[in-house]
Each structure stands twice: as C-alpha cells, then as structure tokens.
C-alpha cells in the first residue's frame, strides 16, 4: 500500500477502523438490518404468513392505538422495567461487592449465585408456579398456613401476579449481573485502593469516590442492558402463565408476549410487526436516554 504511509495518524486510524468493521458490518446488514427492515415494511401490510401480503397503510397502527389490550400491555411492560431494573441492579451490586471481598470458598459462593441463570427457564418456571400455588401443594402458602397467616393468591390475582412473575425473572437474571459486576470490580486497578488505604479513608468514601466512579462503564452496561431485558421480558412470563398467557386478565402481559401471540397464534404478521416497531421505538428511546444521562468521560 503505497498510499498508506502518506496518511496522517488520524487517517490511518480511520482506515484501520473500517478494516476491522468490514466483515461485521456486512454481517449486521444482511443478518440483522435486513430482517428488521422487512418487519418495518410488514407493519404496513396485512399478511397471515400463508397467503399474499396486502398493503393497508397505517391500519395496523390505528388498530394498535385503539386496542385497549395494547395500553394495558404498555403499562405492564413499563412496570417490569421500573420495578425490575432498580431492584436487580441494587441487589446484584450488593452481592457482587461483598463477594468480591470474600476469599473463603469464593468460587463456590459465586457458583451458587450463578446457577439460577444457567438452569432451564421452562423447568424453573414450573417450579416457581408450583411454589406459588394455594394449599395443599404450594410451598409459600403452606408456610403461611403453618404460621396461621391467611392465604395469598399469588398468581390468580390481577395485582399480585405481575410482581410474582417478576421475582423469578429477577432471581434468574441476578447471576448474570453479579458476574458482570464482579468482572467490572476486578478491572479496577488496585493502585487506587492502595492509595486510599495509605490516606486512611473509610469504606464509604472508597465506595463512593473510587469504586462507583470507576465502575461506571460497567454500570452503564448493566443499566442499559437490563432495561432492554426487562422491556423485552417474555420467556419468564410465557412460562409462568403458560395456561393463560399473560393472564389473569392480561395483567402480566408484556409487549413481546403480545407480539408473539399476534404473530404465532393469530398469524396476523402485519399487526405483530406494527407492535414490533413500537417496541423498537420504546427501546431505542429508553436506551439513548440512558446512554445520554449516564454519558461523560468514563475512559479515565
């Protein structure tokens, strides 16, 4: 490459960057953006997967706007986000923070917290559903009954069902977040802690002045990623409410479950695509907002 040597450092960087990105960009365009684009197109069509597609303009979006179930689902989706993200963030940080300071049987403890993330979601949802049953079979209600406390309807209730389903979702995802936090904590150079030790500052100061600021890239990742996760929640709800998906009375139905049902039970692909476009927009706005709020120079 005769020309390469004459380029400025900045220009060389640009050349290298695009050389690195060449294969991935082709991959993403073909495998990801093309199907995404086709979903956007489908949202203006009527198509039952089997027959031909017909253009319908904005009809699917109008239908969505006027669908009371959609608005319920919309609220549920945000409920998962607003309850799920902060809870799982705080719990997993506390666990990771303390695990990080524990040496005795460290690997074993870490495995205990990670195991739920590895186990089949279908099998675990069944176990949880069983735990939540009323007496005589439900574990929790049996426990309450043995204390003489009245029964709680966990799943067969429009108010309790959503948090009852969120709990196993948080439980299963905790291990994932703990591992990421651990990796982040361990990436903080020890120098800073040693300097702090020499200065003799307390643990709270170390936490708020050193650990948290240096953990920022990790926190950004977990906040954005777990928000996407909760806004896209599907598996846990679907498996927990398998006999009455998203029920009772749609009180636990998230948007992705609505999309799934519209696409693969109703075979109304155009309507499902319109819902997908809405989901996409929500996710994009929330993610960009979070990245913007948490922006700042995190490289130092």
């Amino acid at each position: 490459m005769p020309g390469y040597k004459n380029l400025s450092i900045r220009q060389k960087q640009i050349v290298w960057a695009w050389a690195f990105l060449a294969v991935p960009v082709v991959f993403y365009v073909v495998i990801r953006f093309y199907p995404t684009g086709s979903a956007f197109v489908t949202s203006f069509q009527e198509w039952n997967l089997l027959g031909t597609r017909a253009w319908t303009g904005l009809e699917n979006y109008e239908k969505l706007w006027n669908d009371p179930v959609f608005w319920k689902v919309f609220r549920n989706t945000f409920a998962y986000l607003i309850i799920g993200t902060p809870f799982s963030l705080v719990i997993s940080f506390v666990i990771a923070y303390h695990l990080d300071k524990t040496r005795f049987m460290h690997g074993f403890l870490r495995m205990l917290y990670f195991l739920p993330f590895m186990t089949s979601a279908v099998a675990m949802a069944w176990i949880w559903r069983w735990f939540y049953q009323p007496v005589p079979v439900g574990l929790f209600n049996n426990f309450l009954a043995s204390l003489g406390i009245p029964q709680i309807e966990f799943l067969n209730s429009t108010t309790n069902a959503l948090p009852s389903i969120l709990a196993p979702a948080v439980w299963a995802g905790l291990g994932f977040q703990v591992i990421i936090f651990m990796a982040g904590l361990r990436a903080i150079p020890v120098t800073y802690y040693e300097a702090a030790k020499i200065d003799g500052v307390g643990w709270w100061t170390v936490l708020t002045r050193i650990t948290l600021p240096l953990l920022k890239p990790t926190i950004v990742f977990i906040v954005v990623f777990s928000s996407i996760g909760f806004l896209r929640i599907f598996d846990h709800v679907f498996n927990m409410t398998t006999n009455n998906p998203g029920g009772p009375l749609n009180s636990t139905k998230p948007l992705v479950l609505m999309i799934y049902e519209t696409a693969f039970s109703d075979f109304d692909m155009g309507y499902a695509a319109a819902q997908t476009v809405v989901l996409f927009t929500i996710l994009l706005v929330v993610s960009l907002l979070q990245l913007w709020l948490l922006r700042g120079d995190a490289t130092k």
């Binding site: 067969n156 209730s157 429009t158 009455n244 029920g247 009772p248 009375l249 749609n250 039970s265 109703d266």
Partner: peptide, 18 residues
C-alpha cells in the same frame, strides 16, 4: 382463532372470579 376464542372464555370467568 381457537386460542383467542378460548381466551375470551377464560377472561369471562376470570372477571367474575377475580
């Protein structure tokens, strides 16, 4: 649409029950 029509029945009883 069997699943949607079933859901209507499920919700009918659910509204009375819950």
């Amino acid at each position: 649409n069997e699943s949607a029509q079933r859901q209507a029945m499920v919700d009918m009883v659910g509204r009375i029950d819950i």
